[in-house]
């Protein structure tokens, strides 16, 4: 098992997914935002403005590096070239946290730029655990693994997602990133109870939470189909589920994700303020 952190940890407060158009506003007045998360793949260039901005931000804020391209659930071996680039970023930035997804995105050298689903089987467990061991070894730190948004299920699945995540964490020592919107989206799409999911989730392993917006559609049978779009405000039922979860396990670093149709800074800051109002009373 590896060290939990090398450079402190994220505060039990509100953070936002960093977007370059907000750089000046954040540096001037971050409001309730106490930490920032970046997508690792956007900072793998050799230089230029992205790296320069990140250096400035890292002087003022704890940074969480969130990978979206490792394909930890991939059937093929991990892309070692990509893992080296990730290691380079983590080495110079020394972020407060690193997280990735329970998903796959690369197969036969094609990177599909989406977080694709996995069957919850013994074979997937072995593969994902081996890949997480490899990542934690390469980075020299513990990582957090995020629960996915899912739109369909695999007939071959043998265990629940919560049991799967619990076993992955037990085998690898990794922590978990609990995305409350993903819980709500998946539970709606799978017609299960999001509260039952939270009740069954190993909350003691949660090192970070995500909140984001989703779109509402219907499948061809008229059943609700929620899409994890990160393009709107967090909806009230997700806020309620978040508040209930925080009341139960205590405060955790909590991130607002808004990746599409990114709003002006005040709108994003207001979402962070809403998380802050839920976190503050339990952080006393």
């Amino acid at each position: 098992m590896l060290d939990a952190t090398r450079s402190g940890s994220l505060p039990n407060a509100a953070g936002v997914g960093y977007k370059p158009q907000h750089f000046a506003a954040i540096m001037e007045d971050p409001g309730p935002v106490r930490w920032l998360e970046i997508h690792a793949e956007n900072y793998m260039g050799d230089g230029g403005r992205p790296i320069a901005q990140l250096r400035h931000l890292a002087e003022r804020f704890p940074i969480s590096v969130h990978g979206v391209g490792l394909s930890i659930g991939g059937e093929a071996p991990l892309d070692t070239e990509h893992l080296s680039r990730l290691r380079h970023l983590v080495d110079w930035l020394n972020p407060a946290s690193f997280s990735e997804h329970l998903a796959w995105s690369t197969h036969d050298t094609a990177f599909l730029n989406d977080l694709l689903p996995l069957p919850y089987t013994a074979a997937t467990l072995d593969r994902v655990a081996a890949h997480i061991d490899q990542v934690q070894e390469a980075l020299g730190r513990r990582m957090l693994l995020e629960n996915p948004s899912t739109y369909l299920a695999f007939a071959e699945s043998e265990m629940s997602e919560t049991d799967f995540l619990r076993e992955i964490a037990r085998r690898t020592g990794c922590g978990l990133l609990l995305d409350i919107n993903n819980v709500f989206v998946s539970a709606t799409n799978q017609q299960t109870d999001p509260r039952a999911y939270i009740a069954d989730f190993p909350l003691d392993l949660v090192g970070e939470m995500h909140l984001g917006g989703h779109d509402e559609q219907m499948d061809e049978h008229g059943a609700p189909l929620l899409i994890d779009s990160h393009g709107t405000e967090v909806v009230d039922p997700v806020w309620t589920l978040y508040a209930e979860t925080i009341a139960r396990m205590g405060p955790r670093p909590s991130l607002i994700e808004w990746d599409n149709d990114v709003p002006d800074w005040p709108v994003l800051a207001a979402e962070a303020a809403r998380a802050d109002r839920i976190l503050a009373p339990v952080s006393q």
């Binding site: 599909l112 730029n113 989406d114 694709l116 689903p117 739109y151 369909l152 299920a153 695999f154 007939a155 071959e156 799409n189 799978q190 017609q191 299960t192 499948d219 061809e220 049978h221 059943a223 189909l225 899409i227």
Partner: peptide, 26 residues
Amino acid sequence: AGLVDPEGRPAGKRFDVYRNNVVVSL
């Protein structure tokens, strides 16, 4: 085959969400 909705029916439009995410995001 083997990708299903909550009733165990073929995934259909649910699979199209992934198709759409990939093509639209790229």
